[in-house]
Nucleic acid binder design. Structure first.
Lengths: 221, 221, 221, 221
DNA sequence: TATGAATGAGCTTTCATTCAT
DNA sequence: AATGAATGAAAGCTCATTCAT
């Protein structure tokens, strides 16, 4: 009965999407399953048919998103040849995708923190994966002699943190006030800063062969 | 009656301290007022006599801590003459104090996030103060010609984020495994990286005129 | 189409059997229709096709089982001529059959109790039938002058209760510990005691013309 | 603060009483904590302040009642000298008290059965205590040569079961119909039957120095 | 000031039942 | 006949907050 299975899968997607919305609006602890259900156009029971519990929803959301994200980042890295350019690409891709899907970014970076130690651990683990990804590029760059030796673990952490902080402020800020920067401006400053931080004189802006809309939200999956 | 007032203040301190402990242990949403009261050696009613509600406790905790921290950072900045050294000093002081008081660091950086939008705003505001502090130093350095012009707002955000991420991992990690670095090593890598990121060739390790115990926790206030 | 009807009946049997198993395992209130369906190798919808609701399953199970049981007890009674022997036979048959089908015994004697007033009434009614069966034998024995006059209603209740209690402990006990008695030993003590209780000096053990395996469970219907 | 403690204790009693009422009315699984709270003139939260959960209420009720009961039965036994009279006294006391407090009897004998395996175990354990009490008297009687040797364990089970069954029917029956017997009549038949079952020719009715009202319910504790 | 019993709104979760497929 | 996704009422439980003592 592929019809039912298809329906089930699409329902799950709908619930995940709804959960992302509600959680980013209310925060995890105030995101009632009832409201998630309403937003997904189903019922509380429906949610519990597809997920064993509230925790599982956020966990699934986390894993789902992280998987997508990692895939894209790895693809972006693979598309570059130069070690430094690879690091640069990882950074650029993270920044762009997270900025594109502000809802997810909030959930990912902010809201999950309040969901208890279990989630902190999971979020940390996921962030660690990305840190590891960055570190590998840095290690390669060191091995290739492109940059000087350094404690790449700490540096990768610092990069990830820098990206996170800048992004969070970009995402949270809304369009308030004068100092509002475009994503491109932010990206530009950030990559210059970070590349310089490892002693790699920032190359001119890479010919960017991707979409660069600052764009909206929705339809994350 | 100043005696009573003094007693009241010390009770409040006790409650704040207890709250910091309980929240860092359980997370904000699972930190029951009951447990905070017990830890502060008073009763639920006692807590509610001194604070109008649970939210107010964390808010007060945040402000109290931020005030202390800002004072120390400003003092450290004032003690340096060179613009780049000032930025360096801000960084160093933050790192050292937060590392010293791991409990507070967790509450500050991690747990508050789950306490709802109100807290996120407050934490952001506080972090913004520190970002502003860093940015001012960077601006001065630019004005003094010590470093090249740049978007100091974004760079300051990046610094703060980098510090946060590195610190959080240091604090969370426990003493697990091989890759464990001392705080000094972390500090060293981080300041090199960040100073290089603004094009300031890192000076040799500053003659450190402060305490540098990696030390324990407790008695934060 | 008698073929379809036969199929339907066998499905119903399968469901009843599954219900007996699940209820004896989980207790009535925790016996989910879902699990009964799974055990009967059908689906929730399937169960609801054959029975109007969960209550109806247990009710049908009760009636079905009681019918079988009553038939056997009546046959055993009919096979004896002497009034006291008839009473003895009723007792012996109940003990043997219930012991043989421990699953049913549990459902019958223990689990049904928690299923609400409706079930208590039904179980009581069924037990009353057996009590009536015993009482009739006692009445006949009194009429035949084999035993002295007595309040046979109360005595029959007492017999049934005694049998229930002894049986329940036999069934529940598992094979734990030293005091474990064989079913034959239990039967022997019980019939001596009960016969003596009506002033009928227990005859020597009847030549037993039936199976007496202590045996297993399953395939009750 | 003995005032508060006294209040707390009386509240607990009130809740236990209310629970007994509601459970005997609705059965365990349909006895909502909400309704118990209402009946005890408090709130759900109030109930949970005094008991850790719904289970705990019934467990406490069971233990509380069993304790009272055992005390009285033991006292009744101690008041008799003759071994057979002791067994008789145990029986008589159980019958009288349980009949007096019909509500408790229902909870004790019937409703607890549906509360899950945990309760079945507890109820069984409690019944076992009373069975042990009866058995001890029987053993003493055997040792004293007052009755012939027998499997006193099984006989005690049978006695308890007989008492249970008779009592349950008495309690459940209400005052329906013609066959309604007084408690005295029931007691008389039962003791005759049981004493005869161990070969002890029933003595004439003991001069009964206690209350024998068939009486009502309430105020059990 | 302090206590802790009490409140009650609100949460997550379960599950008998329904019904489109 | 059968499936299993969907429903929604109802339950147990938590906890910030209040208030009589």
């Amino acid at each position: 009965m592929p019809v039912q299975q298809a329906r089930a899968r699409s329902r799950q997607q709908k619930i995940l999407r709804a959960a992302a919305d509600v959680i980013s609006r209310r925060g995890y602890r105030d995101a009632a399953v009832e409201e998630i259900a309403r937003e997904a156009e189903t019922s509380k029971g429906g949610v519990y048919f597809h997920f064993p519990g509230k925790e599982a929803i956020l966990l699934a959301l986390l894993d789902h998103t992280a998987g997508l994200l990692r895939g894209k980042v790895e693809a972006a890295i693979a598309a570059e040849a130069d070690p430094v350019a690879k690091a640069d690409a990882a950074l650029r891709t993270l920044l762009r995708i997270l900025a594109k899907h502000r809802t997810l970014a909030r959930v990912f970076a902010v809201e999950a923190a309040g969901a208890g130690p279990r989630f902190n651990a999971r979020v940390s683990a996921i962030q660690d994966e990305f840190i590891a990804l960055i570190r590998e590029q840095l290690d390669d760059a060191v091995a290739a002699g492109a940059i000087a030796p350094m404690d790449t673990t700490v540096v990768a952490q610092a990069w990830m943190g820098a990206l996170d902080a800048v992004l969070q402020r970009y995402v949270t800020a809304g369009s308030r006030g004068a100092g509002r920067r475009s994503l491109d401006e932010i990206h530009d400053t950030l990559r210059r800063t970070l590349l310089r931080s490892i002693g790699a004189e920032p190359a001119p802006r890479p010919t960017d062969n991707g979409d660069r809309q600052e764009s909206g939200d929705r339809h994350d999956h």
